[in-house]
Design a protein around this nucleic acid. Structure first.
Lengths: 196, 196
DNA sequence: GGTGCCATGTAACGCGTTACATGATTAT
DNA sequence: ATAATCATGTAACGCGTTACATGGCACC
């Protein structure tokens, strides 16, 4: 929904055609290193907004350059934007690839939970690399004029640290289970062992 | 990619048909409260895996009940699964709705950054609610037999806390900018003020 | 005359959700 | 009988990516 509402918000600020919205959105979302939105998504999202009556086309301009299809936010669009501002973003419910991977690696038959240990190790290396890259860029950022960049980098760093702390915890709990293997821990998840 | 590799991993554990894979995946991903994967996604993902040669259909069973299409992971599938285990999960690059919303609210013309303050307030309330819900469920979970649940809830809690800390930081920085409004902070992002 | 930017798209695909549909067995 | 569970899908849509395509203008 970020693109949809992002475009709506930018139109409310007075931007007027697809190309301009594209570059403005990329800037808004932290630059194309961070999120390289492709033009097709901009144009198709605008088409959907238009079809929904939140955005309207009010003509075509051509001053020297190529044609520009001029767009405006409609009253309905402004209403939806306001509603969005008043509603919290829902917790993009952890459909977590790392978690799935870890659960699978725990169920894998290798002795000593070896697969899980490797998954954790590989992931931790990657997280450290990312965290290092992020903090380096954060140090280099200019507090004047790059406030958005800094806030974004801070957010990324915090989530990377959260993942690292979580991995520590998982590993600790793994050691613990290792030392006293229970009679029926049953990490294998089966479909229906009900009775039959 | 979670579903794709999740199914591959479950097939490697010996599960054999769509329905069974569906319930096993839901269990693996933390129950349907957490991620309610729909059957169509399972079946269409399996079809794609089959088309890619990672999974093969080896016959149909029918013992008393309805037909079951029996599936197996192929050597190619096993290879892809191993490669997945050896590769870190890439940092689902923050295409962050909350961040976009906040940037838009900062650019909004309201005096005193009012819109931004409201966005922060609404979001913080929601995050506290979620965190409370998560910690309550975590307390109630049984460490024996619900290890996966606990790990997942811990992960969620850590990321909710990261978001809360980040909001604190944003608010602090907002106050700071408020006290000394700079000549050209230019939070408004425009498309092309280059020369023209 | 080529490179790059401005400005617009289409087509096809992958992932994910919602709604709809079918038919059989099992439990109440 | 009816409701739940087992087991399978199709159709249509939204969001997002990749590849492809078209033209004009500006600069070197």
């Amino acid at each position: 929904m970020s693109v949809r509402y992002g475009l709506l918000g930018l139109l409310a600020q007075g931007l007027r055609h697809g190309y301009e919205l594209h570059s403005a959105f990329v800037a808004l979302a932290g630059g194309k290193d961070q999120w390289d939105v492709k033009p097709p998504q901009i144009y198709s999202t605008l088409a959907r907004l238009q079809e929904g009556g939140l955005v309207a086309e009010v003509g075509v301009e051509q001053e020297g350059g190529p044609e520009k299809r001029i767009l405006t936010i409609t009253p309905a669009g402004r209403a939806e934007l306001d509603a969005w501002f008043k509603t919290p973003v829902v917790g993009e419910h952890l459909r977590d690839e790392l978690f799935v991977k870890l659960m699978l690696s725990l169920a894998d038959g290798a002795p000593g939970g070896q697969t899980a240990r490797e998954v954790i190790h590989v992931q931790r290396e990657a997280l450290y690399r990312d965290l290092h890259r992020v903090t380096a860029r954060r140090q280099a950022a200019d507090p004047r004029g790059e406030l958005g960049q800094i806030l974004l980098l801070d957010k990324m760093a915090m989530h990377l640290e959260a993942d690292l702390r979580w991995l520590e915890m998982v590993e600790a709990r793994l050691e613990e289970v290792q030392r006293q293997p229970r009679p029926q821990p049953e990490p294998r998840l089966r479909g229906r062992p009900k009775k039959q």
